[in-house]
């Protein structure tokens, strides 16, 4: 108690309190807020801005009313989560066509993304953007996340999320830097080649477990440098380069005549 009393006067105390309050509010909100279809939480002004942004940046491919075109998916009913995933990870707007859209520095800020998401979800109900509490790795069960990840995800994304190849130049990206929110949204919406993992397949709690597992992997390996986490091929390459390199160097030194 004494310690607690002492800490109450700490200069960071107000900040910590504020943070706690925010978290609690967020948590309560997350618990109470209706999760599907976020259209009703967005203001009409947002939708208007979003529409303008859409016309300027997206309509060339996706069509004036987001109805899609040959080779380009319709966005009616994809939901705010899909928009937020694609735009905040920089995949959309797409720079050039290729086997798949590539993640790059985002081109629209948080506000613009929200407006776009509001517009697209006003076209048809779809998965909503998860709340911060839903994607908080601290609340996930790492061990269960591991069990789920290796059954559902590791075949494409590699055992620790280092990424892997798909057919015809497509690939499953590495997940080292993907934000928890984007991980959640990717599972929920199944962008591009990735299948959908809806809440019946992988429940929201399980999704959070997977996030916890992936974030835990970012601590690196207990054994030292993880060598990219790519498995035996990279181990073999490093073994030859470093091990055989140094040992043959040593052999040359041993065999050389001293001056």
């Amino acid at each position: 108690m004494k310690a607690l009393a002492a800490r109450r006067h700490h200069r960071f105390a107000p900040a910590v309190l504020l943070l706690l309050a925010l978290l609690v509010t967020g948590g309560v909100y997350a618990a109470l807020a209706p999760s599907p279809a976020s259209a009703d939480t967005a203001s009409t002004a947002d939708i208007e801005t979003g529409k303008k942004l859409f016309q300027a940046n997206c309509a060339t491919c996706h069509g004036a009313n987001a109805e899609g075109s040959p080779g380009v998916p319709s966005l009616v009913g994809v939901g705010a989560a899909a928009v937020d995933f694609q735009v905040s990870s920089g995949r959309m707007p797409m720079q050039m066509s290729g086997p798949q859209a590539i993640s790059k520095p985002r081109q629209m800020d948080e506000e613009q993304t929200a407006a776009l998401a509001a517009y697209v979800s006003s076209l048809g109900a779809g998965p909503a953007i998860p709340t911060d509490a839903q994607v908080d790795p601290a609340d996930g069960d790492i061990a269960n996340g591991m069990a789920l990840f290796r059954t559902n995800c590791a075949m494409c994304h590699n055992a620790v999320g280092a990424g892997g190849a798909l057919s015809e130049g497509k690939f499953a990206p590495a997940l080292w830097e993907t934000t928890p929110r984007n991980i959640y949204q990717a599972m929920l919406t199944g962008p591009q080649s990735m299948p959908v993992f809806n809440d019946a397949n992988v429940t929201p709690e399980e999704k959070q477990d997977i996030i916890a597992f992936l974030v835990d992997q970012r601590e690196g390996s207990a054994g030292g440098n993880a060598l990219g986490g790519l498995g035996p091929v990279s181990e073999g390459l490093w073994g030859w380069a470093v091990g055989m390199g140094v040992l043959i160097g040593a052999a040359v030194w041993i065999g050389a005549k001293s001056s």
């Binding site: 069990a147 789920l148 559902n152 199944g190 959908v196 993992f197 809806n198 019946a200 397949n201 399980e206």
Partner: peptide
């Protein structure tokens, strides 16, 4: 049932584009 949890699967759970192990 879903691997590894063992939950049963209803047809309605399997949406288009989903994959279940």
């Amino acid at each position: 049932a879903i691997d590894p949890s063992g939950r049963l699967i209803k047809a309605a759970d399997v949406t288009v584009g989903s994959v279940f192990h």
